[in-house]
Write a protein that binds this DNA or RNA. Sequence first.
DNA 1: CACAATACGGAGACACTCTCCGTTTAGCAA
DNA 2: TTGCTAAACGGAGAGTGTCTCCGTATTGTG
Lengths: 183, 183
Amino acid sequence: MRADAQRNRDRILEVAREVFREQGYDASLDLVAKRAGVGAGTLYRHFPTRDDLMDAMMQSWVDRVTESTDKVLASEGSDRDLLLRWFETYVELISLHKGGPAKITTAMGNPESPIRSKCQVLSGAAARVMESLGERGALRPGVDAVQVCRLVGGVASVADQSELDGAAVRPLLEVVADGMLAR
Amino acid sequence: MRADAQRNRDRILEVAREVFREQGYDASLDLVAKRAGVGAGTLYRHFPTRDDLMDAMMQSWVDRVTESTDKVLASEGSDRDLLLRWFETYVELISLHKGGPAKITTAMGNPESPIRSKCQVLSGAAARVMESLGERGALRPGVDAVQVCRLVGGVASVADQSELDGAAVRPLLEVVADGMLAR
DNA sequence: CACAATACGGAGACACTCTCCGTTTAGCAA
DNA sequence: TTGCTAAACGGAGAGTGTCTCCGTATTGTG
């Protein structure tokens, strides 16, 4: 890639993170272009769709998924505690931007999605947690990682759109956790 | 209301049902106006916001909620079966239009929402089901009707946006049901 | 330093929302 | 019936956003 192109790309991403954090997933892309000091054409050439931009923006964030998951897996407490801690981490991770939870959860399991790779990282992390619990026989059989991501993602979407706080989300996650654990 | 106003209002609603069914919650309102043979001004005078239109459209649908709930409550089977049957009914009811589940679930518990009355009917129905199960000691304590609507609504939102079919939704609902039932 | 190849940018087509206001109509009172 | 007024109509157009096209400018290589 030519040096000027690389410069613009980086600049757009930097500004996009800022704008998306301020205004959520629906922010105007022309505004991003303007603030980045490039023309609309440049933005759309680098990122043909909003999802492509999202995907690139989330690149740095992906590393945190693995890291956070490691931390959860290493933490103390009962199986239920671990599962809940993971749920809360997951919700936090996908709630980086307003509209994010719905976006990510919708893309989950859709091979066509431009943010597919990110979803795979997430469901991969979920799989690790579930494998860990599964080995100890803590999980009821027949639930897979993508399903869990959808369930918890559904809760996160509702929380995001209704602007629920952690205290309101917690009991919902508890129900999901209890539904997943072996009895 | 003047006779012509009433006529136009009815016509707009009739067309809106059709268009929303075809195109989901995001359908253009100008298209609704055009197809109804009225000007945009007329549409917006009757229904200042998209939600006001949604609300009016759902009026006839509200009656079905009570009826469907009655049917579920009268049905045979275990507590778990009853709960699952109710969940599936609920998902079906709020999935009338694309985008409906997210819309309704977001509005749930928001006193400012224009479709508030509809949400109350829904959470009221959920409360009836839960009361019935609660009397028999089938539910774990501390879950309220609005929470359940949010959980099931979250599942419905995901299903709606990812276009999941009934078979894919069922296991998610089972997890929620198992999480809610007393152990 | 010349000259492709690559990238830029912004005007503009198109779509949607919503308002404003001149025009039309319903319905009542005489 | 007729005349009148409040009520309602409708569509042009302003505002905002998406996305493309293509003439112009920049890069970096031979």
